[in-house]
Structures are given as structure tokens and as C-alpha cells.
Amino acid sequence: MTTTTLVDRYVYTALRRVPEQQRADIDRELRASIEDAVEARVEAGEAREQAIENTLTDLGDPSRLADNYANRPQFLIGPELFPVWRRLMTMMFTIVLPVVVAVTVIVQLFDDPDFGKVIGGAIGTILTVGAHLAFWTTALFAVVERTGYGKAELRTTWSLKDLPRYEPGAMSRMQLAAFLVWPVIVVAALVLQQFTFTDVPVLDPELWSFWLPLLIVVTALRGAWGVWVYRLRTWTRASAVANAVLVLAAAIPLIWLLATDQLFNPAFAPLADAGLGEDKQWITVVAIAGVGLSALWDVVDTTIRIERSMRGLPTKVAGTGGSYNFG
């Protein structure tokens, strides 16, 4: 009796993962095929029980057989969609996740600038948002892979136009566009926070008489510098000096305002509530360090790039960590 159950168990296990309308027919055919094989083994001298066991072992994992019958892919995301999936995942984790984390940190800073809460919130956001981004992107691709819906649109069509340009010296149009995003955001944020966004501006309105216009002008000049370098099509020492001057002209006043506690509006409620003692102090220290380091990095990085290109030294290919040069 145990032997009949073994075949039953095999067939049921395989067929529960086969579409219903095919099940009855495959059931009948599979049992006939198994019986044929068992019979041949018995005729060759095996005991019937042994023959059944060997036949089923030969047929292998029933879930694999079921996938073959149902013509289901035995992978989550196939090679056609994989490059698109990888590109999207890279973008999610290098752009979307940092932006979300930064926004959470800023919101938390205004809400309750407690060191532990800020760090905890950042880690929590990285874990939850990261898991959601990875899961939903992958789930979407798995569904597309299985239904075929939208697959033609997602498939990569590559052409020569997609090749990046490797031109030492000149800023590419994409680089210029990326470079201009920051000045536009800064100027817009400075103007809007003063006049529209909030009833009480985040930054001290007193600064509007001199310091904020100065920052706006310097930032706008920085944008103009980018356009100038783009149109020059080559790096010059003058552009390196101009860059350093502009970066310092923005960073030094900012650091001074932060250090002397003049930057933020004392009437801005979240800061006014929490703005006592240590919390405020460490925010100031972190902000000064951030402004100082990014200014230093900008000056050094631009100077090195210009020096290399002026001496005709090879330039690094982006994304290789400096192990691969061109020019």
C-alpha cells in the first residue's frame, strides 16, 4: 500500500503548482508515464517497490517538473530586465535613499534636535526605506518578468548616443546641468524662506539687509562660473582661482554667522524651544564642520583637476575609483 501512496504523493506535489485547466490531463499522462517506466524496470528484474522509488528519483524534484510543465521561469529577474533593474537599484540607493535620509534628519533637527534621536532616526530611515526601495523595485520587476506587461518598454535599447564623452578639461553639458542645480536651489530657498514658506523665517530676517543678498550674489556668481568654464571648453588657472575665491566668499561669512549665532532666526519656534545648551551647540559645530570641509574639498578637488588637465596628465574615468584613466 505504501508504494501507491508514493506515486500519489509525487503526482499531487508536482501538480498542485500546475495551472488548474491542465491538471487532470497531466495527472493522467504523468501516471501513465511513471507506470510505463516502473514496468520496464520490473521487466529488467527490479522489485516493484524498488522500481517505483528509482523511477520517481529519476524524475527528480516535483517542483522543478511543475515549473517545466507550467513553462514558468526558474529565476526572479531574467537577463533581459536585469540591467534595467540594476540601474534602477543603483539610482535608488545612491540618490533616492540619501535624499530621504537627509530630509528626515533635517525634519528631526527642527522637531527635536537631540543627538541620539537624530542618529537613531537616520539609521532607522536607512534600514526601513532601504528595505522598501529594494523590495518594491524587485517585486515590480518580478511581476513584469512573469506577466510580460510593459516588458518591451522596460527593455534597454542601447545606442551609440548613450556612450559618455570623456573630454578632459571641458565640462560636459550634463555636468554643467548638475552643477547649476545647486545654485538655483540655494537662491530659491533663501528667497522663499524669507517671503513665502513660513510665517516666521528660518534664517534671521535681520540678515536680509546685507548678508543674505551677499550669499545670493556669490551663489549666482558660482553658477556663472560654471557656465564660463563650460564655454571656455578648457580649464585655466584663472578659473581655479575664481572658483576658490567664490567658494571662500560663501563659506567664510556662513561660518562666521554660525559661530557668532547670527544665522538662525531666534523667533523660529522649533529652534527657540529646543535652542538651549548642548543640543544647539553640537548642531552649530556640525554645521560649521560641514560647510568648512565641503568648501575645502571643493577648492582642492577643482584645483587638482585643473592642474592635472593643464599638465596633460591623464584624467580619471568616473566610477572606477581612479584605477582607470583616459587622455
Binding site: D58, L59, G60, R64, L65, N68, Y69, N71
Partner: peptide, 12 residues
């Protein structure tokens, strides 16, 4: 050829 690839192949 193995049985578990041949039988589904016939239906395909």
C-alpha cells in the same frame, strides 16, 4: 534526455 524535461517539452 531526462524524463522531467521531455514530458513538459512535448506539451510545449
Amino acid at each position: 534526455v531526462e524524463a522531467n524535461t521531455l514530458y513538459p517539452l512535448l506539451r510545449r
